[in-house]
Each structure stands twice: as structure tokens, then as C-alpha cells.
Design a protein around this nucleic acid. Structure first.
Lengths: 161, 161
DNA sequence: GACGGGGTACTCGGATAGAGCTTGTCCGAGTTAGCGTGG
DNA sequence: CCACGCTAACTCGGACAAGCTCTATCCGAGTACCCCGTC
């Protein structure tokens, strides 16, 4: 149960984008160079975020990515779901159907108590992720590292793309 | 972030084992036939559970697997961890180290606020799994399906192995 | 000097290969039960 | 009849392949800008 590496990249990239002047787009190449990541692959993750409506993209010169909505309206769950997909980690293949008294009509994802127990944990995980917005993270970072916004903007401006 | 299929098998197999007379071992072949699973592969999962101290195994005729301790002392988290490993789902590769002001000495798994946010969710997930014991599940199932214990024992006895 | 058109460079987007992990399978080491034999 | 040793079958345990997802990369479609020519 390993989460894709792209999740970390997506989270940090979104945070960096939250410090960019609104209306300014940043290219995938710059966002990748920021952490020395493979540009083409990060681009793939940013595409997923765009499809999810978290980022908006524009082509051509002066093109790139920017946040599609306010950081307060973007939760960690939104980003994780955009990259990893909506499925829950535990997948119930309903093996009870092969057991004694197995009924082809029954939806064991609902009735199986083991499945319910696993889902309970999954919901707790999602609830915790949904409770943290990008604005929360942004605010915490700014409080702990006041230089972060300016430092990020400067580095993004200085990087060649 | 897909969990191994073996987790479901392990959970159901442990539950079935909780209904077997204590002192009686059940072979991997029987546990697999119970749900028409590939025996050799289930065996692999049972080995992992044994290494984790959840099951105890014995070789030779009349050998097999049995619970190593009381169902009340086995949590869902124990079983999941035994199969999936102890690592948390979100892996922080500390890409901040490549960013501005990156310090090779700093442990960004601790200081990075994004990493902390993800860990918070992971802890909530684990807490929920640890709160549910095999005895809880067993009790709930027996209350909802009173025939389950006998039905399970009968099927295990009837299966050829 | 202002406007319009074409070319050009730049960006995303999806289609295309390679690596690592999960899944699936096999055979060997160890152990226990049963049986036969001898006392 | 009982005890002992041997055989043989059975089980786990780890070593050995195949499929699939994740990782990585490339090139094409689309777009905005810039330059040049014309009015």
C-alpha cells in the first residue's frame, strides 16, 4: 500500500502556486526545476490536477498552471484523490460470495463486517485529509517560515524554463 | 494506493480460525478452499501472519495454522501491518531538501508541514484500525449471523485438503 | 505612426517504452503419525 | 500385549517466474506573442 510519489510533488507544487501572484501562470518546467524533479512526469501529475479542477492550465508563451480556486477551497483530500484516484485503499473482492451461504445477489461490500471495519478506518483517514485545506498549510508555513513566500517567488522567477 | 489483495484473505482467514476449537490447526489448503483461493499464495500470507506472531504454525500431519493469541488481543491493524508492512502510505521523500534553503541535516519528515498533515491522517487511520479487535468482529458476526460459527466449522471439516 | 497578417517559439496533452512490486507457482526441508516388528 | 524404530505421507517455508501498475520519456496539437509589411 504505497502511495504514488507524485502525491508529494503535487502537494508541494500546489503550495508553491499559492504564493504566486494570482493571474500569473507557472510552467511545469519551472515547478519541476524547483525541486529538481523530472519535468515531463510532473507535467503528468499537473494534468491530473487540472482534470480534477484544482488547477487551470493555459498553453503557449506565458502559459502554464495556476490554482483554479482559492486555497481555502482546496483540501488535502482533493489533491490526493486527484492523483491517486477515488478508490479506497482496502478493496473488498467479496470473497464471502464463495463461502458457505454465499449469495450472488448480496452486496457484501455493505454487509460484510470486515469490509465495514476497514471502511470505517478509510473514512477516518479521508475526514482528516478533508479537514486540512491548502490555506491552512500555507498559513502555518508562513507563520513558521516567514521568508517562504518571497523566497519561493524569487526562486520561481530566477529558474530558467 | 491499492492495498494488497492478501489483506482481505488474511482478515477472513483469521476470523475463520477464531471459530476453530483451540488446539486444532487448520491447513493452508483448507483455508484457501474455503473461499476458492489459490492455496500456495494464501500460504504466503499466512507465513507473514506467523512471522508477525499473530498465527502459530506446525508442520507435518495434523499440522497447519492457528491463532497464536486471543482474538481480543489481535487488532485489525496488527493483521494489516503484518501483510502490508509497517510503512505509512504517504512517503515523504523530503524534496524540500532540493528547494531553497534546503539543509542536508534537517529531517524534513518531522519539520515539513505537508508531511505532518499527511501523517495526521495516517495516524487517524491506524487509530481506527487498532480500535477494532478480532474479538469485536467475531462478536458482531455471531450476533448478526448466529449460524456462522457452526457453519464455518462444518465447512472446514468437510473440505478436502 | 497605426493596423493587420503571418511566422515562430513556447506550452500543455496524450500516446509510447522501461522498472519495480504484486501476484502466482513450484519444489525441498522438517515433522508427525502410523505401522510393523521384536521382546 | 507393549514398546520401539522405521517408513512414509503430509505440511510449512522459502526460492523461482509472469502480470500489472507506477515511473519516465517523447513528440504532436494548440496558442499567444512578435515582427514585418502595408495603409
Amino acid at each position: 500500500m504505497r502511495m504514488s510519489e507524485g502525491v508529494e510533488w503535487a502537494l508541494h507544487s500546489c503550495l508553491n502556486l499559492s504564493w504566486v501572484d494570482s493571474g500569473r501562470a507557472v510552467t511545469a518546467a519551472k515547478l519541476a526545476a524547483f525541486y529538481e524533479l523530472p519535468a515531463a512526469y510532473l507535467n503528468k501529475q499537473l494534468q491530473a490536477l487540472t482534470r480534477a479542477g484544482i488547477l487551470s492550465s493555459s498553453s503557449g508563451p506565458r502559459g502554464g498552471f495556476q490554482l483554479a480556486r482559492s486555497p481555502a477551497a482546496i483540501t488535502l483530500l482533493d489533491i490526493v484523490t486527484a492523483i491517486e484516484g477515488p478508490d479506497e485503499a482496502f478493496r473488498c473482492d467479496e470473497i464471502l460470495r464463495q463461502g458457505p451461504g454465499g449469495d450472488p445477489e448480496t452486496d457484501y461490500r455493505q454487509t460484510c463486517l470486515i469490509s465495514q471495519g476497514m471502511r470505517r478506518a478509510d473514512i477516518a483517514w479521508r475526514r482528516e485529509l478533508a479537514a486540512q485545506t491548502l490555506a491552512d498549510i500555507k498559513s502555518s508555513v508562513e507563520q513558521k517560515f516567514p521568508a517562504a513566500p518571497l523566497s519561493t517567488r524569487n526562486r520561481l522567477a530566477a529558474l530558467r524554463a
